[in-house]
Design a binder for these strands. Structure first.
Lengths: 190, 190, 190, 190
DNA sequence: AATGAATGAGCCTTCATTCAT
DNA sequence: CATGAATGAAGGCTCATTCAT
């Protein structure tokens, strides 16, 4: 029996539960005990699969990276033009925030929780955000193909920053006005 | 012995030490034990002054609000025009980030660490950020006096969001390119 | 101004609050902090009047002794015969138990809480119960004047024990059936 | 290594030590720290086996219930008649009190220490005492088979109450006179 | 007479991790 | 693979008491 296709392993259970809890409660506020309890696993089982809590944290962010990017891609795929894709990214933000358990960006939250800049967790955060920045950059380059590289970069980064700050302040104020303002501004820039 | 004029009270010691540790390590990662140890205080002394760790957290953010706003005001005061004041705010960000122990924004970090939206900590965060938003709004209103309210609001919020995201990603990437891009964009908007 | 007649001293406040809390929560479960807080007194004030928590405990039991005996006497006084007085004592138990905050006998509870037999608290308990035993003894002697001393003693002690166990098990079962059974038995004995 | 047959588990150590300390010092006066120290266990080990101190308290009372009932049964078993069994119960009391560390009834002490009537601890107390009441009731019914139910009940409850108060006041006065008086009275009733 | 800062041991509980089975 | 007993430091907080003012 190949587990990968037919059934979920205990490792998957743990990762799944941890992902939910890390996101909802924060990485440091979530204990290994709670994770294994909700995943119905034993202490030892946990450490069979993960060398440490931090390694689980990294696995979480790696999986989250894939999942979140898929969400973004799914939202953007239907659109034809680069401009429409960028705006669709902001629309995605709106629908994401509509979820009942919106707690902002898992990566930014982890960044804030993790002082040590060289920690494995922080590396995942940087990689993920690098990727998002690149995402906007290539779309802007496509849309504003005639602009200079410096001009393109300014616009791409602006959009990236507006996107990021929208997430943060929707989390903060529990309202979508930051997103609406950002979207308007982005429209102007394109 | 009049403590108010001659010497620091133990309460001040505790708050001072806690402010440093909360900022450097995060609120939840910092234990009461570490605080009192570094403040050279007894357990009981802590709870003579603060009903709970959370209350200390609130005291920290309240003090931080005052201190940080003073930094901003000091940076902005020398400038005459509203436009110059806004740009000076971004310059302040640059010098702030230059500090060896830059760990981003205490308020945004606390936001990320604190899932419960109605927690006293989160209230402090909202108040502080509301104030910063207002700060940019009034300067934009002054500078762009002839624009419609809606246009003013869009610009003010954009600047606010760029400011915020700059902090977050300077913390994330440990580099000032987010700030430079933001500043360029803000210059364009004014 | 004589405080004793005109106004309550802080000492009285403390003793009054402590009496309530000791009875409701138990002696050991009640902290000095809670007492002074509810009595609106300072730490130092507490120790001005009471050398220690234990001394306050003794003061509480001494006062309780007086108050409780007064209750009993008030209940018994209207009756003319010794027999009626004894039965009135059991009736008093019934009305006492009817109080919303009935928590059994302060003295027996303190006995149970206090392992050290020679503690000042335990001494108060013994004195109080000695007095109650004497109370029943003299009434039985009066009622059964013609019996031998040994016979009198057996009856008096039986009544005393039934009285005591009634209190304990009304506290335990939160019902008055122990009292009703005891009263019936006592009626038979007289 | 099969623990169940060969050696005592740490859980047993903890429960055993706790049982002694809870009885000797009282439930609330005994800290988890002291228990694990005397049981030579780690903090975490304690909470591997018991969800909370209260749960340990309940486990203690449950075990005590079994043990104590066994003592009683052993004392009563040799006797043939119901009457003799009842008197043997009081004799058991006497030998029990002779133990050097007599501290009264664990259940009654816990009752006195625990204000909250619906606490799990209080439930154990009620169950245990219910059982003891039943014990006397069935013996009285057997002995006084010809009496009415009401008469039986009065006698059974009287005996139960005399039994209980004997324990309490042997603990209080550190003497067996309460027991002797109770026994004499019980003899009269049978 | 009264204040409240200061102490440090102790409260119950959770932490991340190891390891023998 | 999987279990769960075992560890000991640390979590936030309360305890009874002292003492300088």
């Amino acid at each position: 029996m190949k587990r990968s296709t037919e059934s979920k392993t205990k490792r998957d259970d743990i990762l799944e539960v941890a992902s939910r809890l890390f996101y909802e409660q924060g990485y440091h506020q979530t204990g290994v005990q709670q994770i294994i309890k909700e995943a119905d696993a034993a202490k030892g089982t946990f450490y069979t699969f993960f060398k440490s809590k931090e390694e689980l944290g990294v696995a979480w962010l790696k999986a989250r990276h894939v999942v979140w990017n898929q969400w973004l891609e799914d939202a953007v795929k239907p659109k034809r033009t680069a401009r429409a894709k960028i705006l669709a990214a902001f629309d995605f933000l709106e629908s994401w925030m509509g979820e009942c358990d919106f707690r902002g960006c898992a990566f930014l939250n982890t960044l804030a929780e993790t002082p040590e800049p060289d920690s494995p967790l922080r590396k995942q955060v940087r990689e993920h955000k690098q990727g998002l920045h690149d995402f906007f950059r290539s779309l802007v380059n496509e849309h504003h193909a005639s602009l200079t590289a410096a001009q393109q970069e300014k616009i791409a980064t602006t959009i990236f920053l507006l996107f990021e700050a929208s997430i943060v302040h929707m989390q903060n104020f529990r309202s979508d006005w930051p997103l609406q303002a950002a979207k308007k501004q982005v429209t102007t820039l394109l």
